[in-house]
């Protein structure tokens, strides 16, 4: 990090730096043009100067010229920005999910293997990582300047962001959306590591059950299994193989069963899958966001279970 530039620690960082440079150059040229013309005119045509003034100038041609020039410039900028944004907003398919939960005023991170940390995030370099963002209370915003990524963490839904770190180091992250008195203290560190070191670090976190296993326990504890097991008497869908598939809805239409879908299903039974009675209770207020994340991890782990034909 220098006095003028932040760390450049992810693949996106370079793209954003180039965009910044491009914008700066354009802005500088425009500014030079405008201020340069103003200064020249102010000197040449100051009241005391004897410069000969020409007759009136036809304005129409100038108007058309500068309007269309700016317009074209703008279109170019729009596309450049759009490409970087689309890149930043589309995680690669193989990105590893890590769950990040914001609450006043701390961040809790859950790795798929069940390791959890607070106000720190360990990630391997050279691998796309997808953060699944959830909030327990108000809107927060997860912001890692060195990676040039940020996204609001909105209660009541999941958002995500992804990055691929490229250098080993320790970079600060912040909460970038006003969330109350200690908003400024809601920050921490991203630690990037060589994949091998990362694996060691994960292993060193002590014996911990994977998120999916913890979720399995909760699945029984909250009584989900009472309905969602094959031997149950209630006609409820089996959840194996659900994740990532399109679900046919009652009343027509499909929806992809992603994390947000499963979450809404658990907390407020938002959609009714075709062919099932709307019997599932609402769990909002009974299951914390953290446990929901675990249940989702469990349901996702069922994806590859044998005999999961739906």
């Amino acid at each position: 990090m220098t006095r003028f530039l932040p760390y450049t620690a992810s693949t996106l960082s370079h793209e954003v730096n180039w965009l910044y440079l491009g914008l700066l150059i354009i802005a500088f040229c425009v500014l030079l043009l405008v201020v340069g013309m103003m200064a020249t005119f102010c000197v040449r045509y100051r009241r005391a100067s004897a410069t000969v003034r020409g007759g009136p100038v036809k304005s129409f041609r100038f108007e058309i010229a500068w309007t269309s020039a700016t317009f074209l410039g703008f279109i170019g900028l729009f596309f450049w920005g759009a490409f970087v944004y689309l890149d930043a907003r589309t995680p690669p398919r193989d990105a590893v999910p890590i769950y990040v939960l914001g609450k006043q005023w701390m961040w809790k991170v859950e790795h798929p293997g069940g390791q959890s940390e607070i106000n720190t995030l360990h990630v391997p370099i050279g691998r796309p990582i997808r953060l699944v963002l959830a909030s327990q209370d108000v809107i927060h915003d997860f912001f890692v300047p060195a990676f040039r990524v940020k996204y609001d963490v909105v209660p009541g839904r999941y958002e995500d962001l992804w990055f691929e770190a490229i250098t080993v180091g320790r970079y600060p992250f912040f909460c970038s959306q006003l969330c109350g008195t200690f908003h400024a203290d809601m920050r921490g560190w991203v630690v990037t590591m060589e994949p091998a070191d990362f694996a060691k670090w994960l292993a060193a976190q002590g014996p911990s059950e994977s998120l999916a296993l913890q979720g399995k326990a909760l699945f029984h504890q909250y009584g989900c299994s009472g309905c969602h097991e094959p031997r149950s008497t209630i006609h409820a869908p089996l959840l194996a193989g659900l994740y990532g598939r399109p679900v046919a809805l009652q009343g027509g239409g499909f929806i992809i069963a992603d994390e947000a879908y499963i979450r809404d299903q658990i907390l407020m039974n938002k959609h009714i899958p075709a062919g099932y009675p709307p019997k599932m209770p609402h769990f909002a207020g009974h299951i914390s966001e953290e446990d929901v994340l675990k249940l989702i991890a469990y349901i996702k782990s069922l994806a590859s279970a044998p005999g999961s034909a739906r």
Partner: peptide
């Protein structure tokens, strides 16, 4: 105003605002 407006264009550029929003 020109400087303010030009930087308004910076933040209107999606890939850039994704970074500097709320900074």
């Amino acid at each position: 105003f020109t400087i303010g407006g030009l930087t308004g264009l910076f933040v209107a550029t999606l890939g850039f605002d994704e970074y500097v929003h709320d900074t």
